[in-house]
Structures are given as C-alpha cells and as structure tokens.
Design a protein around this nucleic acid. Structure first.
Lengths: 340, 340
DNA sequence: CCCGTTTGTTAAAACGTTTGCACAAACTGT
DNA sequence: ACAGTTTGTGCAAACGTTTTAACAAACGGG
C-alpha cells in the first residue's frame, strides 16, 4: 500500500506538503501542486480513510438505525423509497451510509454505543417512531448529531423530519366522507408507534367533525405486514353491521385488505371503499388501484439526510422540526365511477 | 473522550494491558482483568474504531455496491429481502454494512477506489449483474475480497452466489406448458443483465423441448419497473394472434402486466395465465395471487455475506460458486381451478 | 537449590494522516 | 537598502490503538 510518505519522497517534498495538496486548504505553489498531483496519479495514491479519521475526528459516515422488527420495514416499498432519498442526498454531500438493523433491545444499545462512542459515524438517522423511545432520550442527552424521521415530544436537541400525520389521516378520512360514506373503519398499525397514534387521531377528528359515529369494533390494530390487513377483514366484515369505507395505515396492509375483501366476496369500491397511506409504487397497479396519501417519502429521506449534514457541518440557521407536505392521490378504490 | 490510556492510568497498569483485556487474546490474571473491566465500566470506556482500524488494517465493515439505476432496485421488494438476508448474517458476524449507490459510471469508479484503496471496507458485495461488467474485472484483478450476487463468466478470484436462472425459467415455463398452454410469451428485463439472458435461455429451452414455437413478437424487453409490464401488454395483446400464457421476469413487472390485462378486459387465469419470478411478499396478495418462482432471496443475501466473511477471515474450504435452490410456488394466476 | 519453563506485564514502535509553529525566501513600499 | 509582509514549505507532535520483544516473578522437577 502506497502512503503519503512514498509520494513525498518521490516528489522531493515533505509529507505535510502532500497532505496540503490533497486537501487544498493551504496555498501551495502551482509547480509543487502539479508535480505532486502527477506523481500521485502515476503511483496510484489513495489516502487511508482510517488514518484521516483518527486525526480529524470525523468519518464522513452516517448511520441509519432501524427500529427492531426489521422484517416489517424491509417488506415495505416505503422503506426502499425512503432509503433512496437518504442515499441520494448523502452521497451528493460526500457521506457514506452505514445501515444497521438491531435484533434485540440489548443489541440495539450495543450497536449505538459502538457507533456513537466508538466515533465510527458522524451522525445518525433514526427511524424509530416508537413513543417515548429510550434511544431517542439517550442520543438527545449525549447531544449526538441525530435526526429522527418521525415525531417525539420531549427531545430538545435532536432534529425531526416528519409528516403532519394527524392531518394526513384527516384528509384521507374526509375524502371518504365526501364520497358519501358514513360507516368508516380504520385498520391501524402497532399502537406504540407515533405514526399509528397520529393517524388514529386524524381519523377520529374527521369523523367527529362530520358528526359520524366512531365504532370501536371497526377499529383494528395490526402491524405493517400484509397479513395484518388480510386478517382484519375476516373480523370486521363478519360483524352484523359492516363499514362501507376503510382507512388503512399502510399500502402493503391495504393489499392484504383488498385480498381479504376479495376472498369474502366483497367488491371494491362497489361494496366498500378504501383509502390508504404512503402511496408506494405498486398501489397504482393494484386491482383496483388504491387511493393513497402520498407523504413524500423520498423527500422525507432526502430532507432528513440534508438536515443532519447541516447540523454536523455546524450550520445554524435551520429549523429543528421539518414537515413534509402530503397529497391525496385518488384512484379507483375510493371512487365508484372513476375517470382517468 | 476517554481513551485506553485513561483507563490504564486509573487501573495502574499499562495501556497494553488494557488493550489485552479488551481483546482477550492474551492471558491476563483474573485480578487485573476484573479490575480493568470494572474501571472501564465505571468510566464508560469505548474503544475508538478508527485507531483500531488504523493499526489492525481491518475495518469490520463490508460495502454493498449497487448497480447504477438504483431507482429500479429500491422499488422492488426483492431488494429489501436481499438486504435483510445480508444484514442478518453480517450483523451476526459483527460486521457493519456500508450501502453505496453510485449515480454515474465515473462516480461508481471513484466510490470503489475510495472504499477499496482507502481501506474503508474489508470486502464488497456486488449486485451488478451486468454482462462483462468492467467493475468485476477490476475488483478481480486487484484480488479484493468480493462476492458477486449474480454470475460472471471470466472472473477468477471473485466468489459468486446465484440461482440457476436458466433452470428457474425452464421450470416456470414448463409449468405453463403442463397446464396446457401452447402460446407462451416472455416479458423480459434489460438484455445486458445476466439474469435476463439466463432466464430467456431457460424459457427457450422449455419451449423447444416441448416442440412449441418461439415467436419473437411475444417476447418483450423492458426494465424491472412496474410500468414496463403494463406497457408490454398493450403491444402484445393487440397482436392478431395472442399468447395464452406469459412468463414475466419479476413480480413487480407482473403487477404491471396484471393491471394492463385487467384494463384491456382480459381475465387471469381464464383468458391468459401468468407465472413470474422472485416471489416477493406481495405476490401472494395480488388479484389474482401470482404464481412465482421463489429464488430464496433472503438466502441469497445471507449466503453472499457469509461467503464473503469466510473469505476475509481466511477460510479455505468452500466453493467459489454457490447456487441457491429455487422452488415454484403455484397460485391462482396460472391455475384455472385453484384449491388452496 | 538451581535451571528451565510458564505466567503476567510493560516499554516502545508502528499504523498514515493532519496541523500548529517556525522559518526561509520572495516580494512590497518607502 | 531596509523593515514588514506575504508566500511556500518543513518539522514534529498528535490522534488511540495493537503488538513485538523483553523481562521479572513465580513455579516445578531434578
């Protein structure tokens, strides 16, 4: 392996000079710069990242920290889209991305410690959307550069990037109401996630404002996996009084809902309407295409990465909390006579 | 930040002793070990990863290198599942994962150089399945620990993990033939990918062995995005003579195919049968559920990571080329009277 | 009781960079 | 011609580990 000293020797200059040529921070004569650059090229020099990190105390690396049940995330196109946004921005800014999925809470803590205190990364993008997650509090108290994709009530230094999920769900529910539906159910996600809670709140507000009843038997909690939606249908649609509209926490779950309704012999949207969230690429191609709230997933990731890098590089003038706008995309699943 | 020297001072031993306690490679008396461990705990010591890497010339990090059009991959659940397998194994083995998506060929080369020659990672998992990819040749010639998920004819040192995609496609096509279909089309992917070529070969062999015609107008090339399948339908189904069965390169594309057929008024499987590849989680919930060849995606990732780590750690007794078994999962899209 | 081994520990060099300080040389204006 | 400034470069320390070689102490067998 060829080092800075080899270059220095070959170019008849000191290692410091080579270093300065590489970094370009200091003024170096055109002649030396050219000579050193040529020799670097010839000898195929590549700076050793570890040595650089050791002295500069900076790694040019960020970590994405996944919440525990990675299975859920990886089976959702939502995550891929988020990742795409994060990677696009961070690679543009010259940062590498470390992807880390913990398996147990213990493991989660060890991983964080290793990455954060071991100075392995400069910042962390946290996907944990759990209410009062101790991880968030921990990172917050250590003042480690972190951006949370999601919402948290009581962190003081950590940045957050999120949707207004209450409004997101309000809009979706209101859309069903405007289509003339009065008996609207909700297929939710795990209750300990802020996103579930927020969307539930928006759903309730929409019904309340419209003077419609909130029936607890029409509200089902599940996870973000497809089978969750499938199972929910057998319980909801066996009730004596059935809903005529459904709000679903996630598109993947909506696929399960669609399949469940199909097998039970209900047609969408003739018998029951459907609106969902996240607008993954496949929703448009479901049978029927699923109405979904586009929450700007790519933007979410892109902005998270951007904010984090700004924080790391010491910028000051930016808000601590960023909201990404959303937009309801209406498709056949919620419109009886749909015209493209 | 608290270093090994601080611990050494507090415990009245030398830094070397602390280092040995941490690594556990050498015999250290029980008494010292306990004392040092207690003090490390008390003072909250975490070893600096960069310093360690610098001297040990090892980073405990692998990189996943994505082929250029990242958009495609991230919109396919196949990728998520692969990632899940890779992460599961590598985190079990104590390796971190760097995720890197290049945007241009130039960028791709720079990234590789930075990671490989900058000694930033110990090994690379390459997803490029392009035929005769110069990247593969480059890594091969530098003897850098690499595992390729896919196939390559002329690399000598690089490990590969793959399916027998020729057989995969043969099985899928043969299944349609056994269902009584005689006019079978193929919706393929980009022709410069080995996977497209291999599956095409299997498709052809199945038809040939059954004495069925291969009609070039029933073969369409596209990409791995959903719209590719959607568009293919308008061209194929307008033909005077239409196929009665379709083999589709990827489940996501199959969703587009399904949607296209639906809009054109064809029913699956009554009018035309469908079989696809990769068996992503959502295929089971399509309308109708899609028959798909499960290629062991998780296994693919898991094994790739495992082989790479073995290579890095200097094991010798393992094969250079690993094939992951596949299994056709038959669902409604290819069976008229389907019994669960 | 002595010699050879085992056991536990340390000093010091090395890993490949960056950077503060010093300094010489080359300019500038008077 | 001289003091003051600018410009270009080098020396050496530092970053936080690991590891080789050396060595002291304790031990065991004859």
């Amino acid at each position: 392996m060829i080092t800075i000293k080899d270059i220095a020797k070959a170019a008849n200059v000191s290692p410091s000079t080579v270093s300065r040529v590489v970094s370009g921070h200091t003024r170096i004569s055109k002649a030396t710069t050219d000579k050193v650059k040529r020799i670097m090229e010839e000898m195929g020099y590549h700076p050793n990242a570890m040595a650089k990190s050791l002295v500069s105390k900076t790694t040019n690396t960020l970590a994405i920290l996944l919440p525990r049940p990675a299975e859920e995330l990886f089976q959702d196109l939502f995550f891929g889209e988020l990742l795409r946004g994060i990677l696009a921005q961070s690679s543009k800014a010259g940062y590498d991305m470390l992807l880390s999925a913990a398996t147990s809470p213990q493991d989660e803590n060890d991983t964080i410690s290793r990455l954060v205190f071991g100075r392995r990364v400069d910042g962390i993008i946290l996907l944990s959307a759990r209410i009062n997650d101790p991880l968030i509090a921990m990172l917050d108290s250590h003042q480690f550069p972190t951006v949370l994709i999601g919402r948290d009530e009581n962190c003081s230094t950590i940045l957050t990037v999120d949707n207004n999920n209450e409004q997101v769900a309000f809009d979706a529910t209101q859309h069903l109401i405007q289509q003339g539906h009065g008996r609207i159910g909700f297929v939710s996600g795990p209750p300990d996630l802020t996103v579930s809670r927020d969307r539930m709140a928006g759903y309730r507000r929409a019904l309340e404002e419209a003077g419609l009843p909130i029936r607890s038997e029409w509200i089902v909690e599940g996870d973000f996996l497809q089978h969750s939606g499938y199972r929910a249908m057998s319980s909801i649609m066996e009730l004596p009084e059935r809903p005529d509209g459904l709000v679903v926490i996630d598109d993947v779950v909506a696929f399960g809902v669609l399949r469940g309704l199909n097998e039970l012999g209900y047609r969408v949207p003739e018998d029951i309407s459907l609106v969902s969230f996240n607008n993954i690429a496949l929703s448009e191609l479901a049978t029927p295409p699923i109405s979904s709230v586009d929450i700007g997933t790519y933007q979410l990731g892109y902005t998270a990465s951007q904010q984090l890098i700004r924080l790391i590089q010491g910028e000051h003038h930016f808000q601590r909390r960023t909201l990404i706008p959303h937009r309801l995309v209406v498709r056949e699943s919620s419109i009886r006579h749909y015209h493209k």
